Simulated assay, not measured.
Amino acid sequence: MLKIIGKATSINVRKVLWTCVELGLPFEREEWAEQHAALNPNRMVPVLVDADFVLWESNAICRYLCNRDGGQALLPLDARERALVEQWMDWQATELNNAWRYAFMALVRHSPAHGDPALVAASVDGWNRHMGLLDAQLGTTGAWVTGSGFTLADVVLGLSANRWLMTPMNRPDYPHLTSWLERLGQREGFRLHGRNGIP
C-alpha cells in the first residue's frame, strides 16, 4: 500500500491525498517524524513511499500517481492537453505561491518576520491579481481549469483557492471562480481534503 508522509492539514499533502481519492488508490498516511529525514533531503512533506520507491515534491507525486495508475483523465496523454495541465500546475507552484506567501505568513501564521503593512498589502494585491487570472481562465473554459474535463490542474489550484478564501483579507468578487468552487464541492476528494474536511 502507498504510504504518504505528512500532516493532513498541509496544503501540499492534501494535493496528494485528494489525487489518491480521485484515482481510487488506497493509502496510509503517516505523520512526519525525525526518522523520515533521510527520505527527503529538504526535510519537507509530502513524501511518498511506494514499496522501495521514494518520491518528494507534491506535484511530482501527483503526476507519478497518474502515470502509475492510469490516471489519463487527470493527466492526459495527448501532448498539448498534458502541457496545459502541467502549465497551470507549474504556475500554481511558482507564480501563485510567490504572490500569497508574505500575506499568508502575516495574516494566518502571524509571523513576526512578516509584519510590514506595505508588504502585506502588496502581497494581498498580487494574490488577488493572480486569482483574477484564474477567474478569467475559468470564464474562458466555462468548466474546469484547462477545459471541459477535471484534471490535476483543478486539484492543485482548488487547494490554492481554498487557502485564498480562508485568509482574512479583502477579496474581489470572481464569479467564475465561485462557480468552479461549487463544482469542486461536489467531488468527494475536495470535500475530504480540499477544505480540510469542512463540508
Rank of each mutant, 00 (worst) to 15 (best):
M1W: 04
I4W: 02
I5R: 04
G6P: 00
K7R: 14
A8Q: 08
S10F: 05
V13M: 08
K15N: 06
K15W: 06
W18R: 01
G24V: 03
L25W: 11
F27K: 04
F27C: 02
W32C: 07
Q35F: 12
Q35I: 13
A38Q: 15
N40T: 08
R43Y: 09
V45F: 06
V47N: 05
L48D: 01
D52N: 12
V54H: 04
V54N: 00
N59P: 01
I61Q: 07
C66L: 03
R68C: 10
D69C: 15
R80Y: 05
V85L: 13
E86V: 12
W88P: 13
M89Q: 11
T94G: 10
W100Q: 09
W100T: 00
R101P: 00
R101I: 05
R101V: 02
Y102D: 04
A103N: 02
A103C: 01
A103D: 02
M105F: 12
A106P: 01
S111C: 15
H114M: 14
A118P: 08
A118S: 14
S123D: 04
V124K: 04
R129S: 12
G132Q: 02
L133I: 02
D135M: 00
T146C: 14
F150S: 04
A153L: 10
L157S: 04
S160F: 01
M166A: 06
P168L: 13
M169H: 15
P172S: 01
T178S: 00
L181A: 01
E182K: 02
R187C: 11
G189D: 08
L192D: 03
P199Q: 12
